[in-house]
């Protein structure tokens, strides 16, 4: 039900490639929640994800505008919620409507996880915590939750298989 893929990446390019693999499995209405410290590679992951959905525009940090929308084969909304003060502001953003017609990627979504739909993919990117290894190493955990993913999980796992022990 909640199998988790735990992948190790050796740099930004690989993080982006995993984003692309996840993106290849997404369709309108899907939600991806990205968590990780400053510099972990959340936006890098989102770049790959958006490319897989046919976005050709440049995907940049959504921190300033909170929401960046992109046109692709499937439209993509890239959201950064870490400064949102209250859950109410999520409603003010029109978050519920945002989810409907596109794939939505939320950075720093952990804080609002309780009000997010259960039907989603959680991606947690961890930097090499000890600080004694390779600076570029990242551990990427990917979990698809909600009954809607039961049928789709095998395809997601297959897409992630090239990256390791998925």
């Amino acid at each position: 039900m909640m199998e988790m893929a735990v992948l190790t990446t050796k740099g930004a390019q690989e993080t982006e490639a995993i984003g692309e693999a996840v993106g290849s499995q997404l369709r309108v209405g899907d939600l991806v929640v990205l968590t990780g410290d400053l510099g972990a590679g959340k936006t890098t992951f989102a770049k790959g994800l958006a490319r897989a959905l046919g976005v050709t525009q440049r995907v940049t940090s959504p921190t300033f505008t909170i929401v960046q929308e992109y046109e692709g084969r499937v439209p993509v909304a890239h959201v950064d919620v870490y400064r949102l003060d209250r859950i109410q502001e999520l409603h003010d953003l029109g978050f519920e409507e945002l989810l409907e017609g596109r794939v939505t990627v939320v950075e720093w979504g952990e804080a609002i996880a309780l009000v997010l739909p259960r039907e989603r993919i959680d991606v947690r990117i961890a930097m090499d915590g000890a600080g004694d290894g390779d600076d570029d190493l990242r551990v990427v955990e990917i979990v698809a939750t909600g009954p809607g993913w039961d049928d789709r999980r095998p395809a997601l796992e297959a897409a992630l298989a090239p990256f390791g022990d998925a």
Partner: peptide, 9 residues
Amino acid sequence: RYGGVVPEI
């Protein structure tokens, strides 16, 4: 105190 501009505020 939020470390950045909060749109609603």
